[in-house]
Design a protein around this nucleic acid. Structure first.
Length: 480
RNA sequence: GGUCCCAUCGUCUAGCGGUUAGGACGCUGGCCUCUCACGCCGGAAACCGGGGUUCAAUUCCCCGUGGGACUACCA
């Protein structure tokens, strides 16, 4: 597994919080697409440096979900790679080694302030309307005093000694040139009192060691870039290319959150949105090709994707359009593929689909009505469960014309064992002619008897799916 | 509050000085059809405001307004 020096290497670095956020999926997707487009490597790294938030099973779930969406990575915790380990909690020694360098060079310092003091400090600053920031109390403690406190076993954190003068100017592929005053940048905690690194420190160290060339992540990180650049330079490392993606938004334009609907990829998968549709939809949030085309497979996206067509403005996650795309995909894919994907939903619902020929026909019909696979079950029930009629339904079926239609159809169907759709079609025409009942007057009672609803597929399709015997049974039932 | 980012139909977006401002979702009219759905055809719908620059601004610059993000020993 050799890597040449200018090969693109990107990473998706989620923290295992229990589920994969759709915003995370978008970030993963753009990283994946860029890697594929450039013939580079896509790496999965787990950022589990917050012990308080670590959740058991979250890692496995994350990997399963990512794999299900087809975003296969080249290196990661479960498959390894040349730059592991790929889980930050397993890299503590590496961080320890690197923080010492920063300590030695004076780019970082020990801080013994406890959280109470920090909290009071922030409160005071807020009330005085000044930006809440560390006041630098421990910035210049003499070496001997530090050694003494350490020897006493006092709890400490390690902070970045960030310069307060000047400004940091950097380039971002999406934002172009960004300038931030150094006075606005805090002395970020790099190592927490539990010995774990914070995001800022761990990601800089890991991105360098893993030879990451492009950091593609959400816009919420934009304002912390100066801290990161400062660390790269303190270590004497090359600074990677930054690509800050526009945020995914709720319909009220706030950052997409759990409170306003489903944000977990799993929940969409559970409802049976096709991963192809979900990926395609997500790809169009913040990125667009030069032409008007909108339907792309994952591999097609990888061919046309480019960073310079990423938008700046946040994008509202619009369920209506997702649903449209879901339906479009379900109709566009092979029936057999949809049938395979939908199978588990039928099994969960306890519907016997062992008759595969029938099942395929049911799916072929149901897919015109749905945008996710779980919906096919509801549209298929009429073909499997026995029908129930409302009072109004009963009243319609009991009408004299209805009875004439049903008994006519019954005796006709009984007359022959094998009925092809064309034959049923001809029979229907004949019935209409002989009974002198046409249009809805004819079709509604008949469809109600066969399907349990006046609205739905045409009669030949219904008979074809049900089969002659079941159709007869239903006609008889409806006449009771 | 401070800093940073952003701004074309309701939503996702095309546009990179001169266009009847294009497409998609949704909405809507029609066609297909016994109905529903699918599908097809059409319609309404946008350049946040004010200054500049320019022969010419949706497009470039500035200010304003609005929205968002960040402002933790969370990521």
């Amino acid at each position: 597994m050799s890597t040449d020096n200018n090969q693109v290497r990107v990473r998706f670095a989620p923290s295992p919080t229990g589920y994969l956020h759709v915003g995370g999926l978008r970030t993963a997707l753009f990283n994946y697409l860029f890697a594929r487009k450039e013939g580079g490597k896509f790496i999965l790294r787990i950022e589990d440096t917050d012990q308080k938030r670590s959740i058991t099973g979250a890692l496995e779930n994350l990997i399963t979900t990512l794999t299900r969406t087809g975003l296969h990575y080249d290196e990661g915790p479960d498959i390894g790679g040349d730059f592991g380990p790929y889980i930050q909690s397993e890299r503590l020694d590496i961080y320890k080694e690197h923080i010492q360098k920063l300590l030695d060079s004076g780019h970082a310092y020990y801080c013994f302030c406890d959280e109470d003091r920090l909290e009071r400090l922030r409160e005071d600053q807020r009330s005085r309307k000044i930006p809440p920031m560390y006041d630098g109390r421990c910035r210049n403690i003499p070496k001997e005093e530090v050694a003494d406190k350490l020897a006493q076993g006092l709890p400490f954190v390690i902070r970045l000694r960030y310069p307060k003068e000047g400004k940091t100017v950097f380039d971002d592929i999406v934002r172009k040139r960004v300038a931030i005053d150094n006075s606005q940048v805090d002395d970020q905690v790099l190592i927490k009192s539990d010995g774990f690194p914070t995001y800022h420190f761990a990601s800089v160290v890991d991105d360098h060691l893993m030879k990451i060339t492009h950091i593609i992540r959400g816009e919420e990180w934009l304002s912390s870039v100066p801290k990161h650049i400062f660390m790269y330079e303190a270590f004497g490392w090359d600074v990677p290319v930054f690509v800050h993606l526009p945020l995914l938004l709720n319909s009220d334009r706030s950052k997409l959150s759990k409170r306003q609907g489903d944000v977990s990829v799993e929940s969409y998968l559970e409802k049976g949105y096709l991963t192809e549709a979900l990926i395609n939809f997500i790809a169009l949030l913040g990125w667009h090709s030069a032409d008007d085309r909108e339907i792309y497979s994952l591999s097609e996206l990888a061919e046309v994707f480019s960073l310079d067509r990423i938008n700046k403005a946040g994008a509202v996650f619009d369920m209506e359009k997702l649903n449209w795309m879901g339906g479009t995909y379900i109709r566009q894919m092979e029936v057999s593929y949809i049938a395979d994907q939908a199978r588990r939903f039928f099994e969960e619902a306890g519907i016997d689909i062992s008759n595969n020929e029938k099942y395929l026909k049911v799916i072929a019909t149901a897919r015109d009505y749905v945008y996710c696979l779980s919906m096919t079950v509801e549209h298929a029930r009429m073909f499997y469960d026995s029908l129930t009629f409302s009072e109004d339904d009963r009243a319609l079926l009991a009408q004299e014309d209805s009875m004439r239609i049903l008994s006519y159809m019954m005796s006709a169907l009984e007359g022959r064992k094998k009925w092809l759709p064309d034959d049923v079609s001809a029979l229907v025409k004949q019935a209409i002619g002989e009974l002198g009942i046409k249009g809805k007057g004819f079709y509604f009672p008949l469809r109600l008897a066969l399907f349990g609803n006046c609205h739905g597929p045409d009669i030949p399709t219904l008979v074809d799916i049900l089969g002659r015997d079941e159709a007869l049974r239903r006609l008889a039932d409806a006449m009771k």
